[in-house]
Design a protein around this nucleic acid. Structure first.
Lengths: 162, 162
DNA sequence: CTCCCTGCAAATGATTTGCACGATA
DNA sequence: TATCGTGCAAATCATTTGCAGGGAG
């Protein structure tokens, strides 16, 4: 939003208002601001992320409000909860194409991969267990190619036999 | 352990001591008790789980100790951390065969599946991204067959188009 | 005798909740 | 006007940490 013209901002804002109304939600300035923040460039974000992102221009908006708003948005399918496994609730914008995350334990890098890499697994779980996996809600942990190469003694313990 | 004879208990206890020593860890009564609790029937467990499980017979053992002990055990590969995605650190005993968890969002049921169901995915991620997935550390979320059938309006929102 | 391990209490960090007021439909 | 949404402060919940004493090697 930073470099947008007033016209475009206005249009965006009214779009957001319409979006909220279409879900039967009340239109409040706080929700517009939050919506504007998350519909934009962010990949995945926590309540804290959003709060600090909007803090400069909107010091009034309380962290609790962000928590509650994201919760509401999720209930209305505007955002989607993702599990990055790090004791933090993380969301991403629902408009995004289905994708998944590979999280590297060593360097913390998060690699986005697209949906079809996990299609086979989804089918397999369905076939074997009748289990309908929702792979949107999670990430796959492991080690990225880069770290595998440089993986020296990080994992090695003093008492491990060599 | 409840119904074991003294002999068997003693043998088990000395086994635990040996196990600890083999890793260069000090043998303490607390560790023996915790080890005894987790090497047994438990599937996956949190620090809290263990603490309350041993509380009756060992009211002295502090929750912090359980946290620190599990952390230590993990560092020494006696237990393995699993991500059940519910803002809780969960472990399972390392001696168990590799397995994974399907977690049902609706009923909370946890279905254990064996390793080979995810082999294909592991290979796929390796091939495509050079990413070495550690699927031991997580679970797959979704809905189990049972809940899919009874899935009425739980997920339906007032404003969703029918 | 030295260092590791533990208990205890207090600190932390993320998230939630109760309450009263103000804003939206 | 009747609700819904918000700010604020306090409450939780899981986990971590500082410190001093006791136990293991």
């Amino acid at each position: 939003m930073e470099t947008l013209t007033d016209t475009r901002v206005s249009r965006a804002r009214s779009d957001y208002a319409a979006l909220l109304r279409s879900r039967g939600l009340r239109v409040t300035p706080q929700r517009i601001v939050i919506l504007d923040a998350i519909a934009g460039a962010h990949d995945h974000f926590s309540a804290e992320d959003i709060h600090s992102a909007i803090a400069d221009d909107n010091p009034g908006i309380n962290l609790s409000t962000v928590y509650r708003t994201l919760e509401t948005f999720e209930r209305h399918h505007l955002v989607r909860r993702t599990d990055l496994g790090l004791n933090r609730i993380v969301y991403h914008w629902s408009g995004r194409a289905p994708h998944h995350h590979l999280v590297c334990h060593a360097c913390g890098r998060i690699i986005e991969i697209d949906d079809d890499a996990l299609q086979a697994l989804t089918r397999e779980l369905e076939r074997r267990y009748g289990f309908h996996a929702d792979l949107q809600h999670q990430s796959v942990f492991g080690h990225c190619a880069n770290c595998l190469n440089h993986q020296e003694d990080e994992e090695r313990l003093p008492n491990d036999k060599p």
